[in-house]
Design a protein around this nucleic acid. Structure first.
Lengths: 225, 225
DNA sequence: TTTAAACTATGATATTTGTCATGTTTTTCG
DNA sequence: CGAAAAACATGACAAATATCATAGTTTAAA
């Protein structure tokens, strides 16, 4: 059986300020679950009774709008805690979580997390900083959405995925997202995302191989207008 | 001299879980400052050495873009703490704070806040919930920006101002924002904001008297398409 | 392997929103 | 008060993006 220690040792974890005792405790009561691409981890407007720690894979947090279109708010990868915010504010989820590839998640009951927050100052402060960081990112995203063009946002998203989830030996983004996923992150129509990616190819900023994307000219891509 | 107790008694305060001792402490070392409309409380990319608690008035948190346009991220009114996030994450501000009318702010040194967070569990958890709440709001704003039309966002903003800052006896919004301010909140051109407000008037959803706005048909305004 | 489904691609067109120009009204301040 | 500045208003046009249509391509499943 896998322990949380490994995760924490690898610094992949939103819980790396827990004491050894606490880790043992969390490790003992967590349950690991597997998900396939497209699986729904939870829907919006659910009451969670725990948080999910990403051990492996990638998922998206999305909001479904009235017209059936979905907006992706955030991608969550290794070591990130999903549902933390809902647990802390004791509210229903405002977003759905959907697996983007094969995932392994550790589910930690609410009480464990809350108890750790209440008793371990370092962990509590860590969570605090984590939320503050998240808030800053959310503000930045809002600004980008308001002030940048679709083209600029798409370029920024490709760079984000490259930086956060890495590239393989040939330089292709490790994470393979569909054009629809990109559109949903950027907040545009799928056709627009496709069109702009085609433009990027023509302009030599990226190249593709099947679904895989490689950044060919980072500097220009970063500064597209 | 004014004490923090008054603010806290009136529940106007992001610090109402502090103990009596702590309040005395904060009260003792805070300094009160006055600002006029348009005054800059701080710029983006500054290192704050404390937080500002709004005792009176209203300000906006804005981001200036390359082309000189500004995006308003949030309006801050009575009892709200400004700069909290930057203090906690120990980063430079990512936004500027600008007074929208005559303001009175209490400045509380960083050390006081951090010390209170580290020693008072209730306060710490309160801040945690506050940030979680803020994060949710930021996510909602992002979704609105991505999925709603300018028209819908402007309608929502009017309703927001009405709910959060109230109306006078005649039903006019207490807070008077310029069309430019509305445009900056909604993320559009000033002319577009003006045009849409004119439409709302023609459609009988709002009425105006000088700079003052009154909601005439809440239901329809709330559900505009 | 073959067949359907999902994904990618691109053109044509419509809609939304931004920009520029110009004039009016309101506010501010010497 | 009266002039200058700021804010408001609206038309005309341009640019960005969405929508609809149609077809090629890849993927997955029977």
């Amino acid at each position: 059986m896998s322990s949380c220690k490994q995760c924490i040792a690898r610094q992949l974890n939103g819980m790396n300020t827990l004491t050894k005792e606490e880790i043992k405790q969390v490790s003992a009561c967590k349950t690991t679950r597997k998900y396939k691409k497209g699986d729904i981890i939870f829907y919006e407007n659910e009451m969670l009774n725990g948080v999910y720690c990403v051990r492996e894979g990638l998922c998206k947090l999305v909001k479904l709008s009235a017209n059936g279109k979905e907006q992706t708010i955030k991608l969550m990868g290794k070591g990130e805690l999903i549902g933390q915010r809902s647990i802390i504010s004791n509210e229903r989820t405002n977003l759905s979580a959907i697996a983007l590839n094969t995932m392994e998640l550790c589910f930690v009951p609410k009480e464990e997390i809350i108890s750790a927050i209440k008793t371990n100052r370092d962990f509590s402060f860590d969570v605090l900083q984590n939320l503050a960081q998240g808030l800053r990112e959310a503000e930045d995203d809002l600004i980008n959405m308001a002030q940048k063009t679709v083209r600029q946002r798409l370029a920024a998203t490709i760079i984000y995925v490259s930086k956060n989830f890495g590239v393989d030996k040939e330089g292709y983004l490790k994470v393979h997202l569909s054009r629809e996923d990109y559109a949903s992150i950027v907040g545009t129509a799928t056709e627009s995302a496709i069109r702009i990616l085609s433009q990027f190819k023509k302009e030599g900023l990226i190249s593709t191989f099947g679904k895989k994307i490689k950044i060919e000219n980072f500097k220009v891509l970063e500064g597209v207008e």
